[in-house]
Design a protein around this nucleic acid. Sequence first.
DNA 1: TGCGCTCAGTGACTTTGTCACCCTCGCTTG
DNA 2: CAAGCGAGGGTGACAAAGTCACTGAGCGCA
Lengths: 228, 228
Amino acid sequence: MISDPQQRDQILDVFPFLRAASPDFREALFDTATSMRLPAGHLICQDGSQCAALPLVIAGTGRVYKLGENGREITLYRIEPGESCVVTASCILSDRPFPAFAECETEVEALVVRPNDVRRWMADSAPWRAYIFGLIAERLQEVFGVLDAVLFQRLDQRLIARLLSLRTASPTREIRMTHQALAVELGSSREVISRVLKGLEGQGLLRATRGLIELLDIPELERRARDG
Amino acid sequence: MISDPQQRDQILDVFPFLRAASPDFREALFDTATSMRLPAGHLICQDGSQCAALPLVIAGTGRVYKLGENGREITLYRIEPGESCVVTASCILSDRPFPAFAECETEVEALVVRPNDVRRWMADSAPWRAYIFGLIAERLQEVFGVLDAVLFQRLDQRLIARLLSLRTASPTREIRMTHQALAVELGSSREVISRVLKGLEGQGLLRATRGLIELLDIPELERRARDG
DNA sequence: TGCGCTCAGTGACTTTGTCACCCTCGCTTG
DNA sequence: CAAGCGAGGGTGACAAAGTCACTGAGCGCA
């Protein structure tokens, strides 16, 4: 139950589709959903387990990833404010185990919806349906994209692309991130990332120091991300 | 418009969820959907293009795959009678381009549903929703599984698993398939498959001749598919 | 018989992942 | 302060997989 008017407003801001929905639906949602605060690192879903609820992220980010037996892992996508892990949703709607891990990357504030409500609203509310489907399709595309990258693209190109995209958030030329973290993003291993970075450094495209990567020749990096 | 009573019965047999649906819905479906026959090899969807309709497969099988620039490809999943390419559905429902290729593997007879009907029935019919969601979740799991296999499993193990699963359909010890076809299934290349097969042959686990693979030591192969 | 096609084998090389081990930096703590 | 420790990073040797270029084997067919 969400009763605080301020929090309601915040939720409406983060989930614009709610404004398009009927007042009845909004009331039902505020009535039955609960708000939760989860610490960074909290495991939301385990590979192979059933999902007990659908969290809609209000603040913070979640991360969904696959983990191999060897311990290697790869990030599939992130869940930003206003989004939700729709893979969870589809698992709820069809009673299947979740096929990956989901965890809080930062502290997360989420609106938690019960499986039965998820189901009911799929029938009752067109905006809710549109919201869920939009997310499903988006995730599907992201996962397909990851698969494509892993199978068909060279690691150096993928790494460059990722470095550039990490930069777009705050368009500086410095990226504060460990090699290990980059390996996890790309589904590779630390040693390999180190090697590739060293190669790029040797070509004068960037400079890597402990926990920091400085992009030197951004135009050339962009060219490589495009053409190979 | 499906008017032939025999064809209607066939469709009800292939899509059991229709029997659970209301007569109104069934009528609407038979009224607005059309039946189509596509030749083997026909391209249903291209990577990056919009989907114009949702085909429900009545007979034959479709194949959905990713294609790399280099020409390498990987099969993501198949669409059997009674199923449908829900990635298409999710693309339709959210107006996004299709992120892979879909083609007819055999001649395919399909029930073609217009995007607007897909959308409308999501609102009107609970069985239709359950059907679509079930498929979406199933596909998602298959794709996640492929990603997992590609990233974290050794090729020999994957190959063995695939050979065994190909056999389950007709549980003989012979598999009629080219190395190239196996490569496409697993997202590898012919040469590599040839090498791996040769390795397994050297260990006396199977025998490979032109277009035919004969499994010799099935218990050991099963053990390897499990334990590595 | 010879031609052309699909299918498969091979060797050299590159890219990527793995393993074992080392180093360095920054911090805590006795 | 020195010792120790943990996180981050470097390295070399090797294994697994993909790529390229080429060869040859089987098979149908004019």
